[in-house]
């Protein structure tokens, strides 16, 4: 218990050390979650559209190949 208290106190600088770690974890997790959600949304939308018009999809992708 005393060990744990000392660990969280960080030699009296716990008020600086812990927010630094907390913020880093928070920012990285938020960005990761936002990125995962963006992928899911865009890929789901793409699938929906492609399944709506399978014939047209094939034609458009061929067209794009010719354009480039």
């Amino acid at each position: 218990m005393a060990d744990l208290t000392a660990f969280f106190a960080m030699g009296g600088h716990g008020g600086y050390v812990w927010p630094a770690y907390g913020l880093a974890v928070l920012v990285l997790v938020v960005l990761l979650v936002a990125s995962i959600r963006a992928v899911r949304k865009q890929e789901r939308d793409l699938e929906t559209i492609q399944s709506l018009r399978p014939a047209r999809r094939r034609r458009t992708s061929v067209n794009q190949g010719e354009q480039a």
Partner: peptide
Amino acid sequence: YWVVVLILRTRAEIAAAKLRTLRMAQVHA
């Protein structure tokens, strides 16, 4: 972490770009 998020976000960007072209192509068609 950068590699992971780069892949995720690039995948989202690729899908979004395809969506844009598909939508535009269909509107034209």
